[in-house]
């Protein structure tokens, strides 16, 4: 971003976010690898501490800390984080379909690659304009069609703007899937292929997933509760995804923190299918002055 170096005050939260996000990612990775290695005490593992130092710790000392999958229980999760209005900005000029956001999202939500929460579309606005990649998650609309049609209040709008699903309430009628004009929702048609996770259920992590119920991108409220960014944001190698708080008027992609209003103004931010009146909380910046040429089969996206 070429603008905005003056708003340090409102960036405090985000600077904290960035650093802790990094550490968390490291801990997360370590956890994934080492939770089962407790017995082999001779081996050591290199870890990154909260103040940025690399340390070596014997494997016997490593204990699984309460991990990312710690969202609020179903009734508490309906409230939302007070004083926040989450918002996302996706800069289409920087996306080259590296698919890191998809991979990390799949990993943390225990998803299989055939039905991810994040989809990266190959878009072309008209015959003459060039194609571009468009990552799409749930838009967490302020006027959400899915919430309106739900017969049991299993999907709901929170005070912080997030639209969540209570999989312990969902009856699996799939009306919300028909109602969502953005095809944001996926359904747990069968049992999760990875088997059952031994975790307390939370709508904030959408885990463990429940057969016969609907699911979608949740903006990772479990991370937000810990002042961390949703998994897809730091995952992106190109800083495509900005996330932040509308009240603070700041968004960050993990590397730079900018004013939301200025960003949208300067880069002509828009919302997909504005005319439907759903008032999405995800903005797009048009794919102009591209960082990368449009390539279909690059090293990064060819495997998926």
């Amino acid at each position: 971003m070429e603008n905005d170096n003056s708003n340090t005050d409102s960036r405090r939260w985000f600077l904290k976010t960035i650093s802790s996000g990094g550490i968390l990612a490291a801990t997360g990775l370590a956890l994934g690898t080492f939770t089962s290695c407790k017995e082999k005490s001779a081996e050591k593992t290199t870890l990154l501490t909260t103040d940025g130092k690399l340390v070596q710790v014997p494997n016997s000392e490593i204990e699984a800390m309460e991990h990312l999958h710690q969202g609020a229980p179903p009734m508490e999760a309906r409230e939302g984080i007070s004083g926040k209005k989450w918002v996302m900005v996706v800069d289409l000029s920087k996306c080259k379909n590296a698919r890191k956001c998809v991979d990390l999202c799949d990993k943390h939500h225990n998803l299989t690659p055939d039905r991810p929460y994040i989809k990266v579309y190959e878009m072309k606005d008209n015959e003459k304009s060039s194609p571009y990649w468009m990552p799409k998650k749930c838009f967490h609309c302020d006027n959400p069609p899915c919430v309106k049609v739900c017969p049991v209040g299993a999907t709901y709008k929170r005070t912080d703007g997030i639209v969540l699903i209570d999989n312990e309430r969902c009856i699996g009628c799939r009306f919300c899937m028909a109602a969502c004009p953005y095809s944001a929702r996926v359904f747990n048609w069968g049992d999760p292929p990875e088997g059952k996770l031994d975790l307390p259920y939370s709508p904030e992590t959408s885990l463990p997933s429940k057969v016969g119920t609907v699911a979608k991108c949740d903006f990772c409220p479990d991370m937000l509760r810990q002042n961390k960014l949703p998994h897809c944001v730091p995952a992106c190698p190109n800083g495509v995804i900005y996330f932040g708080d509308e009240i603070d008027d700041t968004v960050t992609n993990g590397e730079e923190t900018v004013r939301l209003s200025t960003l949208l103004k300067d880069k002509a931010g828009y919302r997909y299918l504005e005319e439907l009146g759903t008032k999405p909380r995800v903005y797009y910046l048009p794919p102009v002055d591209r960082l990368f040429p449009f390539e279909k089969n690059t090293e990064e996206n060819s495997e998926s």
Partner: peptide
């Protein structure tokens, strides 16, 4: 039969939300 969770059928009454067209249909 179409419901993903027929075991939760009575949620339609317990957690009824009148603005849903499904409830009108029920």
């Amino acid at each position: 039969v179409d419901m993903g969770r027929p075991d939760r059928f009575f949620y339609v009454i317990m957690h009824l939300r009148i603005q849903s067209p499904i409830i009108w249909d029920v």
